Structure formats: C-alpha cells, structure tokens
Amino acid sequence: MQKIDIPTGRAICYSGYREGQSPDSRIYPSLEQIHEDLLILKPHWPLLRLYDCSPHAERVLEVIRRERMDFKVMLGAYLGPEMNNFGCPWGGVYAEDELEASIAANEVEVGRLIALAQAYEDIVFSVAVGNECTVDWSDHIVPVERMLHHVRRVKAAVRQPVTFCENYVPWLDKLKPLVPELDFISVHTYPVWEYKHIHEALDYTRHNVESVERAHPGKPVVITEAGWCTRSNGRGMHAEHAAQELQAIYLRDLMAWTDREQRLCFVFEAFDEPWKGSPDPLEPEKHWGLFTVDREPKLAMQDWPAVATAHD
C-alpha cells in the first residue's frame, strides 16, 4: 500500500459553534471560547479535523500556535454548490446567479485553504478539498471534473497530503477519476443513519471502509467521520437508537478496532451544534457531540482515558 506521512492516534471533528453562533450568521466562537474547547479536548483528542477556512478555523490555528498546544490538524475547505441537484430532499436547487456566486466563493475558499496550509505548516498535517459534495443527496453538489480542478490547484501549492471527505458510496464508482489525484481517501460512515442496530454497527462501519479499500487497492483509506447520534425525532433513523448509552458502545467499539489497526479515524464530533438542521430541538443533526453544547461530557466521555502522547 502507498505510504503517506500522516499521524495516527485519537482524532475528532471539531466545530465550536455555541448557542447563537453559526457559520450562516457569521457569528464565530471567540478566541477565548476556542481555547476553552481545546483545553477540554487536549487530554483525549490530539488530532483535530476542521471543516472550512472561515474565521473560526483561522482562530483555532491561531490559538494552537499562540498557546503552543500539541494539536495537529486536518484543515478542510467548504465547497458550496456548483450545479443543481434536483434529487436532494431538502433543497439543492439554485438560480444561475447563485451558482455563479458559489463557484466564485469556492475559488476564494480554496485560496484560503492554500494560504492557511502554508502559514500553519507546522500544525496542519493534511488538507481536505471539500466535504460531502458529490454524494447523491447533497445540497451542495460539485461535479467531479470541478473537484479535479480544485484538487489539482491545491496539490500544486501545498506540501501536505491532500484528500477529499465523502460518504463511502461515491468512492465505489463515481469518484474513480478523482482517486489518482489524491494522496489518500477519506470515508464517512454512519450506521445509525442507515437504521442499523448497535449490535451490527461496527461490522457495518468496517464493511463500508473495506468496500472502498477493495475498490481502490493500494490507496490509503482513513475515516474522517464516524459517530452516533444521542437525540432524534426519528428523521433518518430509529429515534430509540439515538441514545447516549449506544453512543458510548459505538465509540468504544470503534476506537478498539481503529486503535488495533492503527487506522486514522476522526470521531464525529466534539460538541453538539444547535445551529444545524431544522428548528426542531430533536433534529438529529444537532446531537452528535461527545459533549453537550454547554461543554458537559456525555456518557461516552465519562471516565474516558487520556492519551499518553499527542500523536505518533
């Protein structure tokens, strides 16, 4: 298998938006709030994944450097829609001028990704060009040929390994033209979103990842999202499956497997995010954190052992 220079160890997706904050409103967590979050995560999760190159991400990198914190970061670029997706259940259709503005914004975002990766080369260990923008249900579809453009632009400008983060399904066929351009593949897997019981959850996750590995032999595969919801109104999953007790079991099983295989796996996610999804307080998108929005540990993080070292 192709070798890549990335760390292994405990990893988590971090988005620090609190009550009244969101990327949509452009109200971002303060430097002090981010520092508070990083102190909470530091004993357990030395590898972080950031989703975009907004002021939030820039502040995270600034705090890590200023406070000399021993984190390494996968830095992402958020890519908005570049075409309509008439099959998306919750939107995905835009006027022509909206798509043109989104395409222009994507070029700017990719430029920020390059600039931050260069400026924080000591902290950023890899870069991800986009997130879930080729899967059939996405409301921000980017055509594969445009993904090739964005990835090639980034690879020509940064020294870090380059990836793209996507649900496991497009990797099996749709994304085959993109794979040779990437240093490694990043897979998302969510058994609870696919109505799986906790007893079959880890086997399902393993099947998802291994199916991608079989489709692209020799190409390294990491997990950039795997997690378990703790509250739900039943949209997209069995409501009774969304429970802290089941999140704790899935996390324990997931970490045992990925630790044993020394497979990089980013748990989704650090903190609950109330800005996400519908206004319904039981909207499942809001409830994936290992900590509540008030920074209280859920059952999965109670008595969770600290890591001995920050990263391999």
Rank of each mutant, 00 (worst) to 15 (best):
P284N: 12
R159C: 09
S102G: 11
P89Y: 03
G277K: 04
I141C: 05
T230D: 15
G16T: 02
L48M: 00
Y190M: 07
K298Y: 07
H149N: 09
V158S: 08
K155Q: 08
C133I: 10
G16C: 02
P81Y: 12
H241S: 15
Y28S: 02
C13N: 03
E181N: 13
D70R: 02
A310E: 13
D70Y: 07
G9W: 06
A306G: 05
V222H: 05
D5Y: 06
K276H: 07
G277A: 06
N208S: 05
L172W: 14
A270W: 00
Q302M: 04
L172S: 14
Y14A: 02
E32I: 00
H207A: 03
G130K: 08
I64Y: 00
E82N: 12
E98W: 02
K298E: 14
L290N: 09
C265W: 00
E62H: 14
V129S: 15
L41Y: 00
T134P: 10
D5L: 04
W304I: 01
L246D: 03
R26V: 12
L282K: 08
D203F: 06
P89G: 11
E285V: 08
E67N: 03
H287V: 11
M255T: 14
G227H: 01
F164M: 14
L47I: 01
A243E: 04
V135N: 06
V162E: 05
A226E: 10
L202T: 08
W275I: 02
Y195E: 05
V267H: 09
P43C: 00
R10N: 15
L175Y: 13
L202W: 01
M74V: 14
C229N: 04
L50S: 13
A239C: 10
Y17W: 03
E240K: 11
A128E: 02
G218I: 12
P305K: 09
T224H: 05
A156Q: 09
L202V: 07
E19F: 02
P81I: 15
L254D: 10
S22K: 04
V158A: 12
A128S: 12
E62D: 11
C133K: 10
V129R: 07
L39W: 06
I123C: 07
E121H: 08
S211N: 04
H238L: 10
I103T: 15
A256F: 13
H311M: 04
H199Y: 11
P191R: 12
R235Y: 11
